[in-house]
């Protein structure tokens, strides 16, 4: 309690500790994440390993793609997380802009590079899959292009939140950029339905049975869940680090002021 009150943001609301700000308390976040994080990381790593090994050695090959279909067990989770991570970034941005949630600011800064890395993973593995199957490393169809735009949005956010001397201004500008970029998410999702693309439409949909054999679906679900937990663990660890770094800065500044006075 004592340490967190030192670095708690200036009480902006008249009733701090109420509603959302209850979870915004960085001290509480440190304690909670300290308990959850080891489990999150361990489960994520185990499930990812299970999904990948299952997909690589035990899942059947596709009748026309052969073994190249196994790239799916990396590519598809990366693609889902590229979009899901951006959704997380957007939610943090709303919390940051509307509720001035101090933890959301830090989380948004830390989600950016992780989301960019998973988007890059999606683009790279997609390219590696496209060459043997389609016959091209890259095409400018609507699906591939919109995911590339997502990657640039992440890069833009990473650069923008770090571009200001005053971090508050960086958080605000980054949040606005992130929210403008949300338009891209439905475009990515529906690009394969709205326009002619080289990329095939979604296999797993909310409306119908997945057009995938169960023996391939299970390892995909495991690796997707595993990668999701790994993503969450990385973001949580980075956010923990950011909270502690901010606490260190504040303490050092206070100490400097004390000695000056």
């Amino acid at each position: 309690m004592d340490a967190s009150s030192v670095v708690a943001p200036p009480p902006s609301g008249r009733n701090p500790g109420r509603s959302l700000h209850r979870f915004a308390n960085p001290g509480r976040f440190l304690r909670l994440s300290g308990v959850v994080l080891p489990w999150l990381a361990a489960t994520g790593a185990a499930l990812t390993a299970l999904g990948l090994i299952w997909g690589l050695f035990y899942a059947p090959a596709d009748w026309q793609q052969g073994d190249a279909v196994r790239i799916m067990y990396v590519h598809v989770p990366a693609a889902w997380l590229a979009s899901a991570g951006y959704l997380g970034l957007a939610i943090c941005s709303v919390l940051s802009l509307v509720w001035r949630h101090p933890l959301a600011d830090l989380a948004a800064v830390e989600i950016g590079p992780v989301g960019a890395a998973f988007t890059a993973l999606c683009l790279l593995t997609g390219s590696i899959w496209g060459k043997p199957m389609w016959g091209a490393w890259w095409v400018w169809d609507a699906r591939l292009t919109s995911v590339l735009v997502l990657f640039f949005l992440y890069l833009g956010h990473i650069a923008l939140v770090r571009a200001f001397d005053n971090p508050e201004r960086g958080y605000r500008s980054g949040a606005i950029l992130a929210l403008i970029g949300v338009v891209n998410l439905p475009i990515i999702k529906f690009s394969v339905d709205w326009w002619n693309t080289l990329h095939q439409p979604d296999t797993i949909t909310l409306t119908g049975a997945p057009t995938m054999y169960v023996g391939m679906l299970w390892p995909l679900l495991f690796s997707a869940l595993g990668y999701t937990l790994v993503f969450a663990a990385i973001v949580a660890a980075r956010t923990r680090a950011a909270v502690m770094e901010r606490r260190i800065r504040t303490l050092l500044m206070m100490r400097a002021e004390e000695t000056a006075a």
Partner: peptide, 28 residues
């Protein structure tokens, strides 16, 4: 000058595809 293959969104093992073809349920 260039031909790219566009595969569909179905993924099935060879055995299943063969079974469907053999039983007459599907002609790829």
């Amino acid at each position: 000058s260039e031909v790219l293959a566009k595969h569909d969104e179905t993924y099935m093992p060879k055995d299943v595809a063969d079974a469907l073809k053999k039983s007459g349920h599907w002609n790829p």
